[in-house]
Design a protein around this nucleic acid. Structure first.
Lengths: 261, 261
DNA sequence: GAGTGGTCTAGACCACCTT
DNA sequence: AGGTGGTCTAGACCACTCG
């Protein structure tokens, strides 16, 4: 009713509209978790086409402030609400579980799990990409064992993990692909006395490619955190663990923190 | 010509089209950095409307695989190409510079800087949000000094930084807001003997809100890495440093890495 | 000036959820 | 059944870049 858009403004209508909606959210007129005027209502209220309305809402979706549910409506979201603390240094060790309940640590209520299709650890041999060969410290193209697994990790967060073994370690331990299937590699290394207290961590973030987005059930407007842990022993690289985590659910912590969020 | 879309498929046309384009990119038919058929050409080639073509390209944009330049064309992008290694533990110390050239470390060629509008360190007093109060270990709502600055950091990466001082430290050092203007807070702390070798790091990622997106010149489809460094001395929190970095440019490294990417 | 991407209109039909 | 978001058409005009 009252709110109007300037049709002569150099700022496009859909951006003006997005601004109005953003302000409505920020100032509490559109409370989080609930409601949102339907696209047809917004058309009428602002006297624009559905295309324009959808462009505006599209912007908010990309910012992670709104999620749309087909047939039900669009809902305001707090992009920072669902984050749980994750200890980066512990990430590589524990095995992923098939159901989120398995990892309930008993501390505090854990809500709204995301449904994914877990994948048991599966092993294959692949040539090292430039990036991985840099971390593993082997020649580019060297054939290395790669293990891949999908499941729920610490705090019930869906995650995809990959583990690359250094050929030297593979030789020393006499590993075969068959040994590894169904068993999470760092567990196996630990059982043979390789704990890798040393090591480094590398962190990146990106928008998920469609495959990863589906596998981890990542909503629109949510990036993925990517953590590489370089396991070392006696200054030699033993393995590289890669972990993908939906960024809307995770706060990565390096070093103990007394954080009672 | 040859490629056709299935109109009866349950998969929407624009998603099919996006799939085709993704495959063309992956298999090298659309090389990175160059070209891309214009929207009108794609309309003709696939016999769909411009809306459908734009939806497909929109998907690729959100994945960071394509950038569009008004009037010039759309271009394939390698989402991982421009990353530079950034030492997370060093991030808080050095002051941001107004031009990217100032931080050229001399090691290797640094290309394609992004143009931003630097902001000198400016100080104000704000009530602690729940999140910050948790990190600073003060009561929620406590008035704390906040310093904010925008510029080019290590490796010439645009970044926004904020520093919160613990009230105890502010008192002990007799800081005034005027003291701080134009001076980067960690520098000042260091000059008074507070180095904060201890500390923890917290990392998150998110899609940038429009303000941040503009300030850091973040392209579409690119998230922002957010690093909080909790500076401590004798187990007491001294200050919290927050750093925002465009994720397409940064690989955060924790611990020394021998990585010659 | 020709070609490109950006915005906007006015419609239509569909798939899905809620009641 | 009625309302919601998702897809798609067929057009139009504009702002920008490039040769």
């Amino acid at each position: 009713m009252r709110p109007t858009l300037e049709r002569d403004s150099p700022v496009p209508l859909y951006q003006q509209l997005a601004g109005h909606l953003r302000q409505d959210i920020a100032e509490g007129r559109l409370p989080t978790g609930v409601a949102f005027p339907s696209e047809r209502k917004l058309m009428a209220r602002y006297q624009v086409t559905r295309t324009t309305v959808r462009s505006a809402i599209g912007l908010l979706k990309q910012e992670g402030m709104v999620v749309a549910e087909h047939g039900a409506g669009s809902f305001v979201r707090d992009p920072k609400a669902d984050r749980r603390l994750v200890d980066a240094t512990q990430l590589s060790s524990a095995r992923l579980s098939a159901s989120p309940d398995g990892d309930r640590t008993g501390s505090g209520p854990v809500r709204s799990f995301r449904v994914i299709a877990p994948i048991e650890p599966a092993t294959r041999r692949v040539p090292a990409t430039p990036w991985i060969s840099g971390l593993l410290q082997v020649e580019v193209g060297t054939a290395v064992l790669l293990q891949e697994s999908v499941g729920y990790g610490a705090e019930g967060i869906p995650s995809l993990r990959r583990a690359w073994v250094h050929p030297r370690v593979e030789r020393e331990l006499g590993l075969a692909e068959a040994d590894l299937d169904g068993q999470w590699l760092p567990d196996l290394l630990a059982s043979r006395g390789i704990t890798a207290a040393e090591g480094e961590d590398v962190v990146e973030a990106m928008m998920p490619a469609p495959d990863l987005k589906r596998v981890l059930a990542v909503p629109d407007g949510v990036p993925v955190l990517q953590l590489f842990r370089v396991m070392k022993q006696d200054a030699l690289v033993v393995a590289v663990i890669e972990v993908h985590l939906p960024a809307d659910l995770t706060t990565l912590v390096f070093g103990r923190t007394t954080l009672g969020r």
